[in-house]
């Protein structure tokens, strides 16, 4: 019986709960690229060398070796860029949308997807001000919202913040190296 209970517990622990949408992508786009009415998808197909460089920098490679940035503009005025980054955690994937100003600083970061299990942790982290420390960061900076919210959030919210930090770091590294440094 002990063996069966252990196996059942292990199976439950290993079972990743389904992913739910916390913020719809269009809503994240409206928030992070305010006022934009025209958009361009900029797909950067990384060479082996560049993919390796990115992996060395942030321990991450984009799916299929393709980074997709979205640029927004209002008329002839650039509003900024946006990238959706996936972070795989032991509790399942998170998706973080990171928006940039035309000057290349972070305008904001929004967790758009999480697993059912992580959703309350994300909501607690957001309530504790998860998004605030990211604003104004430039490529090369080290995001650390986990430390910033540690005094006003529980351990699991801080854990999620640490995972979101990874997502923002990946977005910063990608944006800094590849957003407008590659010829079309």
């Amino acid at each position: 019986m002990k063996l069966i209970m252990s196996a059942a517990t292990l199976a439950a622990l290993l079972h990743i709960t389904p992913v739910v949408v916390l913020v719809k992508r269009p809503d994240a786009v409206r928030t992070l690229l305010p006022g934009a009415d025209a958009f361009t998808a900029r797909e950067v197909h990384l060479s082996d060398a560049d993919a390796h460089r990115l992996h060395e920098a942030v321990d991450w490679s984009p799916e299929d070796g393709v980074l997709t940035f979205y640029t927004g503009s209002a008329g002839s005025t650039a509003v900024g860029g946006l990238v959706f980054v996936r972070v795989d955690t032991p509790h399942g994937p998170l998706e973080v949308a990171v928006g940039f100003t035309p000057q290349g600083t972070v305008r904001g970061a929004i967790v758009t997807k999480a697993t059912v299990e992580m959703k309350p942790w994300v909501l607690e982290a957001v309530g504790a001000g998860l998004g605030d420390p990211y604003r104004g960061l430039k490529p090369g900076a080290a995001p650390d919202a986990a430390t910033a919210i540690a005094s006003r959030a529980g351990n699991l919210a801080v854990y999620v913040a640490r995972e979101v930090d990874k997502g923002v770091a990946r977005a910063l590294a990608s944006y800094g190296a590849f957003y407008d440094h590659v010829r079309t």
Partner: peptide
């Protein structure tokens, strides 16, 4: 993967 990094854009 391409030999050099390339960009494809579309509206």
């Amino acid at each position: 993967p391409p030999e050099t990094t390339v960009v494809v854009q579309h509206p």
